[in-house]
Design a binder for these strands. Structure first.
Length: 332
DNA sequence: AACTCGTGGAT
DNA sequence: TATCCAAGAGT
């Protein structure tokens, strides 16, 4: 992993922080290319603090949970003003985007402060070692207590960063979700769930409610110069601060073509380009994409951007799907 | 305390 | 195809 310091090297707090922010609720495989591009574009804290927020949103586009990007930028400016990262838990915890997990992880990995950052890997490992059979999320406190106890071992306290990352690695490679490879586990003798034969059944989780459906319509308005109309979403909330194709609200019922086209950014010869389905955390979204060509975008609300440059814009994945459907229809 | 907030890969 | 899930934080 590109953010991990070689043995014996002193970790760069900026890179530790950046990687932990990107890894929140996000898989390692998804983060690696974003991390590489981000470090290349913003090589150090000063570069990030000096950047415009819009540039940060561009670099984050597609990674999801965009509040992380806004908080990252705000945090960079705060830390730059402080002259560097706080080296203690309370100081880190007070920064935007740094919660209990990330504060503990940065403190341990970058500064050698004892403590166990409890991510999903550690939850799984600790639930099994301690044989916590109560279901999440209620069992969270009991599992964290097990993790904290593991971190009190003198060897763990001597190398908190290595201990934390070793737990991550154990959870990622051996103590996995579906089929843990207990036969290869260096900890199997000390694992209460393995001794009881229930390792693969832990941690237990309460069932989650079904995701509701929502519906919207978005508009691809392209001019003769090869530009398309975009607009910026409100600064907070879902996809906050990101760009989008202009569109309707997302509601509980589908939009008829007539309903949708009444809300189009301009009167034009709109064609139905296709349908996009996208799963968010709390609902599934179905978008009808309409496309039209005009000579000039003119006075329509928003900003005209070259179609050829959309790859570098701050477009979330759902809007990239819409753009792809429109471009495909336009070409065909 | 309970909700909100993305995405793509694994199963 | 549908569901689950990941190095969680903010409100």
């Amino acid at each position: 992993m590109p953010w991990r310091a070689p043995p014996g090297a002193v970790p760069d707090p900026y890179r530790v922080w950046l990687s932990e922010a990107m890894l929140q609720q996000t898989t390692v495989a998804a983060v690696i290319p974003y991390y590489e591009r981000f470090v290349s574009r913003f090589p150090d804290l000063g570069a990030l603090a000096a950047a415009e927020e819009a540039a940060v949103m561009e670099a984050w586009a597609g990674l999801g949970y965009y509040a992380r990007a806004r908080n990252l930028h705000a945090c960079a400016r705060r830390v730059a003003a402080l002259g560097g990262f706080p080296r203690d838990l309370a100081g880190l915890r007070a920064l935007p985007g740094i919660g209990p997990y990330t504060a503990t992880a940065i403190a341990a990995i970058a500064f050698g402060v004892p403590g166990v950052p409890v991510d999903a890997n550690v939850v799984r490992v600790a639930a099994r070692i301690g044989a916590v059979t109560a279901p999440l999320p209620g069992a969270r406190a009991a599992i964290e207590a097990v993790a904290t106890r593991l971190g009190e071992d003198p060897a763990a306290r001597a190398r908190p960063g290595d201990f934390a990352q070793a737990l991550f690695d154990l959870g990622a490679t051996i103590c996995t979700q579906a089929a843990p490879t207990c036969v290869l586990c260096p900890w199997r003798e000390g694992c209460a769930a393995h001794r009881a034969g229930i390792a693969a059944d832990l941690p237990r989780k309460a069932p989650k409610p079904a995701r509701p459906s929502r519906f919207g319509a978005h508009f691809w308005l392209e001019d003769a110069a090869g530009q398309v109309l975009l607009r910026r979403r409100p600064a907070r909330g879902l996809l906050g601060g990101m760009l989008e194709l202009p569109g309707t609200a997302w509601r509980d019922a589908p939009w008829s073509a007539a309903e949708a086209l009444a809300l189009a950014p301009v009167a034009a010869s709109w064609r139905h380009a296709g349908t996009v389905r996208h799963g968010f955390t709390h609902f599934t979204l179905t978008i009808e994409v309409y496309a039209a060509r005009v000579a000039t975008i003119g006075e329509a609300a928003g900003m005209a951007r070259p179609v050829a440059g959309l790859g570098a814009e701050a477009l979330p994945s759902v809007m990239r799907k819409c753009a792809a459907v429109a471009v495909e229809e336009t070409a065909g």
